[in-house]
Design a protein around this nucleic acid. Sequence first.
DNA 1: ATAACAAACGTTATATTATAACACAATGTT
DNA 2: AACATTGTGTTATAATATAACGTTTGTTAT
Lengths: 132, 132
Amino acid sequence: MAQVQILSRNQQIVLDIIEKAKGPLKAYSILFNVQKKGINAPQQIYRALDKLIEMGKIHKIESKNAFVACRSSDCEISKATAFSICESCEMVDEISDTKLSKYLSGFNHKKGMKFKRFNLEFFGICKKCKKD
Amino acid sequence: MAQVQILSRNQQIVLDIIEKAKGPLKAYSILFNVQKKGINAPQQIYRALDKLIEMGKIHKIESKNAFVACRSSDCEISKATAFSICESCEMVDEISDTKLSKYLSGFNHKKGMKFKRFNLEFFGICKKCKKD
DNA sequence: ATAACAAACGTTATATTATAACACAATGTT
DNA sequence: AACATTGTGTTATAATATAACGTTTGTTAT
Ligand SMILES: [Zn+2]
Ligand SMILES: [Zn+2]
Ligand SMILES: [Zn+2]
Ligand SMILES: [Zn+2]
């Protein structure tokens, strides 16, 4: 039974912006977008981002220092994330593939290290950009 | 027949430092380490890093904004990289697993995007840290 | 060898991303 | 009430990365 997460004011504001966005958003671009709502400082953004990531509501695209809303219900609270990234238009798509996720979650390092979490980023040119 | 890459002076200096290091190095820590050799500006470091990455001599650990030397001869010039990262001691180990690499290189997005490159980062606690 | 080009260099300045530190308010627990 | 926990607002600063400019060095072609 999934507990409904109650978000704080700032967390909700930041999440709303990220969910409405078509692509990944950078922290400072979020900041500029919420200054009309009384949020003035980077700290306020980064604090909200940190919590939203913990909750699995958003993910950080490490190669871009940008943030996207989680669209897949089964990504196990950010323990197993995979993205497809277009190097031309910057589009990011969360990959929700049970086989891939299981394969990687079960992968064990030869040197005996047990993994708790992984992040996978694929790069290429998306269909839309190929046409151009 | 693998062409022997000739590195420029700055590229060689930066690569030497990264190869000697036990773990991932940050750009500015490299900079501080080479100031005695007459390199004074971040640009000089970042330019060398960019070229070394292109050549596949080093890799960037995106989640840490840090750089490691490539230890695996078959990582296809940074087209297919995988790392194991200890969240306690920050150790990074390049994963060289043919099956994993083949599996991911052959992975195709449902939405028809063809991938050219991927980067995978696993996180956990390494053997050494578990003992403590 | 010399002209033309490309790659690397050095330098200054600036942009971008992220955290430290402190005081206060709201909320929940014992 | 006392206490811990979480969130807030604010100022300042740290850490990461790039822009722009002119010079130097190395390579290639004639
Ligand atoms: Zn997700
Ligand atoms: Zn695209
Ligand atoms: Zn490698
Ligand atoms: Zn460790």
